[in-house]
């Protein structure tokens, strides 16, 4: 059922024959066209070049504006297409860098969540921190040849990307001042969004440098490093899961009545998603080396 809308609909029988036109809807074309354009725009550029016109025609034929389930299906298709594009075309290091970005965001969230629980789950918490450090150091090791090539001046134009995280952090501190002035939940949300933006910009800059700067890493370096990255993330995810269960078992502060549960589950899911991405990056790197 995962790849179907689950809703039945009756199409004009004559449309089953090749080349027959669909029955036009009574609503204005422009009303539909805006939605169709927006839905097609959700797909990756490469996909749009190949399928965009015919897909837009299909959406028009289906009178998509009347069918919320089909709109959702189209959006899910766009997500799958983006995922497929990332998985099928992106270099293993690109996938690894974005996995690390997601892991970093989730890890910061975990640190923020855990700071209020000093007692239970201390060992699991320590494992999360240790394995996170191992994973991120493994990524640094995998990226080191490109960093050395940059230092040796192989691509002087790539230096501007190194400034991205520095500028990003400086801007984040500016946002921090604004967030403190705003206060409350809006201030926190602003700060969190700014943090995610800085991490995303850093991941983009790192990926750009890795793709631009020519480097010749030792043959086994990246497969080993990405394996350690995925394993470290996986262990950290399991430890975060165990930590939450231990906090739950000892916590008398109304586990289900607090925002802890959705926050913890969301973070574990994000850590798990990052681990899955890192695993895919590792698998692709291993395939490339074999």
């Amino acid at each position: 059922m995962s790849e179907r809308t689950g809703r039945k609909w009756t199409a004009p029988r004559d449309a089953r024959r090749e080349g027959h036109e669909s029955t036009p809807g009574r609503l204005s074309v422009s009303e539909d066209a805006r939605l169709v354009r927006a839905l097609v725009a959700c797909y990756p550029a490469g996909w749009r070049r190949r399928y965009g016109d015919e897909y837009a025609q299909l959406l028009s034929d289906l009178r998509i504006h009347r069918r919320p389930a089909l709109i959702i299906d189209s959006l899910r298709g766009a997500v799958r297409a983006h995922g497929g594009e990332l998985m099928s075309r992106a270099a293993p290091m690109t996938v690894a860098v974005w996995a690390a970005g997601l892991f970093t965001v989730a890890g910061i969230g975990f640190a923020k969540l855990a700071e209020d629980f000093r007692g239970p789950g201390r060992t699991a918490h320590a494992i999360v921190v240790l394995m996170s450090a191992v994973a991120l150091l493994a990524l640094v090791a995998a990226a080191a040849p490109s960093g050395l090539a940059l230092l040796r001046g192989r691509d002087s134009g790539a230096w501007k990307y190194v400034a991205v995280p520095v500028v990003g952090v400086a801007l984040w501190f500016g946002v921090l001042a604004v967030a403190v002035a705003i206060g409350g939940k809006p201030g926190f949300v602003l700060l969190a969004l700014a943090g995610v933006g800085v991490v995303a910009a850093t991941a983009w800059a790192a990926d750009t440098v890795l793709r631009r700067v020519p480097a010749s890493p030792p043959r086994r370096l990246r497969p080993v490093a990405l394996t350690v990255l995925a394993a470290g993330m996986g262990l950290a995810t399991v430890a975060a899961l165990v930590w939450g269960l231990q906090v739950r078992s000892r916590g008398a502060a109304g586990f289900l009545a607090t925002p802890f549960l959705p926050s913890w589950l969301g973070l574990v899911l994000a850590l798990g998603a990052a681990t899955a991405l890192a695993g895919l990056a590792d698998r692709r790197q291993l395939r490339a080396e074999s």
């Binding site: 299909l58 899910r76 298709g77």
Partner: peptide
């Protein structure tokens, strides 16, 4: 009923 996203995938 195959949705459009499912069909084109």
């Amino acid at each position: 009923a195959l949705g459009p996203g499912t069909l084109y995938a």
